[in-house]
Design a binder for these strands. Structure first.
Length: 316
RNA sequence: GGCCUGGUGGCAGAGUGGUCAUGUAGCGGCCUGCAAAGCCGCGUACGCCGGUUCGAUUCCGACCCAGGCCU
């Protein structure tokens, strides 16, 4: 092994929803010394199986995925949690002499892992509640104006309507006493590994849209409504939980309450999934150092296989 | 065949004699502890042909189409 490149190899497999990531990852794991780590903000939740298109129990048994089913739906999981968990799992897998394959569609998680996060205070429920109250009482303009006084750089960057980020910026100041922009300016630590980035990027959106529609129908057939009902019955259930706002779940609550038809639910779920895929694709297009593959090309799997083989050969 | 009502962007749906409806879908983008979240941006649409007018999606006429009523 080359001395100046002794960093351990890891692989990223990124792609929008319904692009065939899971099947491809399992295929790779079946004949390479690869172990899987999920990079997905929804798969972390227990009890959310059908609507998240989580690999089924047999599949997970045969090809274990780290970071799947590690939270209850009332818990909040963050990009920082993910980064810490992923780093730990990567180390363990490397320690076993194997290669971590990070597979998923959450762009922020991949970026947080790869480029690092600034040393910021973590979310604080009390501060958030205060800021939410302030937003309702004083208004978003007032919130943004307050940020402009405390952190003009960040305020200029954020739209007044982007309440979520304006609140976060104010939260950071409240907890640390320092402006967000200042803390974000400090250097971050990047990943100390040799990364092969693979991206499944559809060139034509039509087949992706067709797969999405089929998948939503399959979910409904597989009992998505029953799954929603079970989640809805939990005493801690709230439509405002991050988990319950996920695609395929959020659109279901009106149906369960009888305020929209099943077909309405279905159509809204399909649209929301397409919009999710579109945002995921935008993340992928900014991954300039990734090898991209069209999942709808017949040769995609072979090409990925070839890229992985070559990458792994280079390590020996 | 006659009468009535209506034909507006992919869809829904306002409106006006002379920059702009709007919503939704779609497309492009942003993204540092909620991210499957949140946010920003993008559309000479006014059934067809004439006429009136400086100017018509808007007024007039014919025609076509749809729905309703009548014979």
């Amino acid at each position: 092994m080359n001395k100046e490149d002794a960093r351990a190899p890891i692989i990223f497999l990124m792609g929008p929803t319904a692009s065939g990531k899971t099947a491809l990852a399992c295929e790779l794991a079946s004949h390479h010394p690869i172990e899987l780590i999920s990079v997905d903000s929804a798969l972390v939740y227990r009890g959310m199986d059908i609507g998240t298109a989580k690999p089924d129990a047999q599949m997970l048994e045969r090809f274990p995925h780290r970071l799947v089913n590690i939270r209850d739906p009332q818990e909040i999981y963050s990009a920082a949690d993910f980064r810490a968990d992923a780093l730990r799992e990567i180390e363990r897998i490397i320690g076993r002499g194997r290669i971590p394959l990070l597979v998923g569609g959450t762009g922020l998680y991949f970026r947080a892992l790869d480029r690092g996060l600034s040393a910021l205070p973590e979310a604080d429920a009390e501060v958030r509640a205060d800021l939410a109250r302030e937003a309702v009482q004083a208004g978003k303009e007032s919130l943004h104006a307050r940020l402009a006084a405390l952190d003009p750089v960040t305020a200029m960057r954020l739209n007044v309507n982007d309440i979520q980020r304006v609140q976060r910026a104010l939260e950071v100041i409240a907890l640390s006493g320092r402006p967000l922009s200042e803390m974000q300016g400090a250097p971050k630590t990047r990943l100390p590994y040799k990364i092969l980035k693979l991206a499944l990027l559809p060139t034509d959106r039509a087949p992706l849209h067709a797969r999405i529609a089929n998948r939503v129908d399959a979910m409904l057939e597989a009992g998505l409504v029953a799954e929603l009902g079970q989640l809805r019955e939990r005493p801690s259930w709230s439509p405002d939980l991050p988990s319950m706002r996920a695609v395929g779940y959020r659109q279901g609550w009106p149906y369960l309450e009888g305020s929209c038809s099943l077909d309405d639910f279905r159509i809204k779920a399909i649209h929301a999934t397409r919009q999710l895929a579109k945002r995921q694709i935008t993340w992928l297009r900014s991954e300039l150092d990734a090898l991209t593959f069209d999942p709808d090309a017949a040769s995609a799997a072979d090409k990925v296989e070839f890229a992985v083989d070559r990458f792994l050969d280079l390590q020996n």
